[in-house]
């Protein structure tokens, strides 16, 4: 309680001193309060509920063939989860394709557990308890096992390198009714939409900070969201058609942003507004 009073006193002092720029002060204190809200969220991230469900799923035989993910190779050997996410996307010779985590999970579900592709991708983004996504839970589990591991996407591998270059092109691609590209909102320092700060993804530090905190529990949605979701919803707001889950463009953009995050410690699943 004394803390609260101190804060009010401090705030009114600020308003008196800078009476001429009251609007800016209010905007600043709003931003401060949002920062405090974000700090308060850090303890007790519900992403752990998804991690627990995903871990259970990872270890349990499932699908028509009754096979566990122990035979699923995420790039570090069959069943190896630790540190795997920090080196994705990567090229998988058995699939003949560069894949991100979500695409690789679907591949294992189809090729090892016997699901149809349609079944494996039926609910890629969950919506409440009635429509839960296995993929989001699995992604939460796998990514949590890369916490503290430095991002190390194999950019010198030719296929990955190629996707990175395509991803960069996609990032700057302007289209749709509003002429928006990823770069429209994420190409400059210190910008925001309304009060939401926008990372500058053209800078290494911006890409590192953003990429290493997905997946994330979104408090406003009460859902855990993966990087595939992040891209999908950005394109919706860009007024583009719908980005297809696991499509080449989605993997190219992921390779571009994950590759630019190389060297930074992975810190997800995080919690966001």
């Amino acid at each position: 309680m004394p803390g609260m009073i101190r804060r009010i006193v401090a705030a009114s002092a600020v308003v008196c001193v800078f009476a001429g720029v009251v609007a800016d002060v209010f905007a600043q204190s709003t931003a401060d309060e949002i920062a405090k809200y974000r700090d308060a969220l850090q303890d007790g991230n519900p992403a752990e509920l998804w991690e627990a469900r995903g871990e259970e799923m990872w270890k349990t035989p499932r699908g028509p063939k009754h096979v566990a993910f122990a035979s699923c190779d995420l790039g570090q050997g069959a069943g190896v989860v630790k540190g795997a996410y920090a080196q994705l996307p990567r090229y998988f010779a058995d699939a003949g394709r560069v894949m991100d985590l979500e695409t690789r999970l679907v591949w294992c579900m189809v090729n090892q557990q016997g699901y149809t592709h349609a079944d494996a991708t039926k609910t890629v983004f969950g919506n409440g308890s009635a429509k839960r996504s296995d993929l989001e839970a699995l992604a939460a589990y796998v990514t949590s096992r890369s916490q503290g591991v430095k991002m190390n996407v194999p950019l010198d591998e030719p296929h990955v390198h190629d996707m990175y270059a395509l991803g960069e092109k996609m990032f700057y691609y302007r289209g749709g009714t509003h002429d928006f590209a990823c770069a429209t909102c994420h190409g400059d320092d210190g910008k925001r939409i309304r009060l939401q700060d926008l990372p500058n993804l053209t800078k290494v530090e911006g890409a590192q900070k953003a990429y290493t905190t997905w997946p994330a529990y979104r408090v406003s949605q009460g859902e855990l969201r993966t990087f595939q979701w992040r891209l999908n919803d950005c394109f919706r707001q860009q007024r583009f058609p719908e980005l297809v889950f696991g499509s080449d463009a989605s993997i190219a953009l992921t390779a571009y942003l994950a590759g630019r995050a190389n060297g930074a410690e992975y810190r997800g699943p995080a919690i966001k507004r």
């Binding site: 303890d43 007790g44 519900p46 509920l49 529990y217 408090v219 009460g222």
Partner: peptide, 8 residues
């Protein structure tokens, strides 16, 4: 109380 409550 919010969805997926956290109690400490």
């Amino acid at each position: 109380v919010a969805k997926n409550p956290f109690l400490s």
